[in-house]
């Protein structure tokens, strides 16, 4: 079965083709970075009309790469939510129009289910059940995943997401916005022991996170140390990254212990962070847990995870072509596939 996946929940437009026997055949992403080059500067990053402009050329490009035609599609999957209503409606409209024109079934996919399942697109594939840490600019959640659609929320951030704390702290440190990756890079040159930053909710006894206070601690430190020299800036970056990595790692271990599960899956943009991967790998190896990561290219929002999740949910496909977006959509309300 050949499934076209369309992701348009936020800033990125992603399109991909997944075949249930042959795997991922093509995927294309129009990221803000590419747009900056293309449009030479100011980018209306969330204008729905940009998704509209991008989605069909990306689809054509995917079909060309896979050597397939629209007629060969067996189903069309799109991100139905959660996300920005206007952006979501672009993917929903295109998917349903295509489905109607081709008389093929259409599947509305939950964005976070796409992220949760993205490590299944890589080898080795984790077997169910597993604990998933979904960590990105918009989300920080721990889930128990027992099968497709069998998700239990174990804990989540009560305020900022981890990626948001990275980006906002980078801004406070004068590294631009969004500067999470720049902060990580600078952290490699810093001394993490010079400053001690708080580990919010590390001993809260539950699996929730809080990163807003960490951002405030960075703000206070920046004011205290101002004006910042390069060494101090790098040292604050290192202390910040160490604090986030420690909290994420310890909560993951606590989730594995609480559920009795042996496998940990990391999904979302912050999952690309090198120190986080090193910290998790090290902690897991000592306790004989296995850790799985999606391919780096699939850590951010993308169409491949939507095509894949759609392929896993073909039986929920619809033929009535009536559609809507679900800007708010709890993940644990999904039916079992």
């Amino acid at each position: 079965m050949l499934v076209l996946g369309i992701e348009s929940s936020c800033d990125e437009t992603g399109v991909a083709l997944y075949h249930s026997e042959r795997g991922l055949l093509a995927h294309r992403l129009h990221s803000q970075i590419a747009m900056h080059t293309e449009y030479g500067g100011v980018v209306p990053e969330l204008a729905s009309r940009d998704h509209i402009r991008r989605v069909l050329p990306l689809t054509e490009s995917c079909l060309a790469e896979a050597g397939a035609t629209l007629d060969e599609l067996d189903a069309i999957a799109f991100t139905q939510g959660p996300g920005l209503a206007g952006a979501l409606l672009v993917g929903a409209s295109v998917a349903n129009a295509l489905g109607f024109a081709l008389q093929k079934p259409v599947i509305g996919v939950h964005h976070l289910e796409g992220h949760l399942l993205s490590p299944l697109l890589a080898e080795p594939r984790p077997a169910f059940p597993f604990v998933a840490l979904l960590v990105s600019g918009g989300h920080t959640q721990l889930m128990a995943v027992r099968g497709i659609g069998e998700y239990e929320l174990l804990g989540e951030t009560v305020d900022d997401a981890a990626g948001e704390a990275f980006d906002k702290s980078a801004k406070l440190l004068g590294l631009g916005y969004p500067g999470g990756p720049a902060l990580s890079k600078l952290a490699d040159q810093g001394d993490a022991k010079r400053f001690k930053l708080p580990r919010p909710m590390l001993h809260s006894g539950d699996l929730d996170f809080s990163f807003s206070g960490l951002k405030t601690a960075v703000l206070n430190l920046v004011q205290q140390q101002s004006p910042l020299d390069d060494t101090t800036r790098a040292d604050i970056c290192a202390a910040f990254q160490e604090a986030i990595v420690e909290v994420l790692t310890k909560k993951c271990l606590a989730a594995l212990k609480q559920t009795g599960m042996q496998r940990l899956v990391i999904a979302g943009g912050v999952g690309a962070n090198r120190q986080l991967r090193a910290g998790l790998d090290d902690a897991a190896a000592r306790r004989r847990y296995q850790v799985f990561y999606p391919p780096l290219a699939l850590c951010t929002d993308n169409g491949a995870m939507i095509a894949y999740a759609g392929a896993m949910r073909l039986k929920h496909a619809r033929h009535d072509y009536s559609y809507g977006a679900k800007p708010r959509w709890p993940l644990d309300s999904l039916p079992v596939a």
Binding site: L46, L84, G137, G138, E156, T157, V158, D159, E164, S212
Partner: peptide
Amino acid sequence: GRVKSPTYTLVEP
């Protein structure tokens, strides 16, 4: 319920 910063979602209703 949870009250999160709307930086990424732009609006929390």
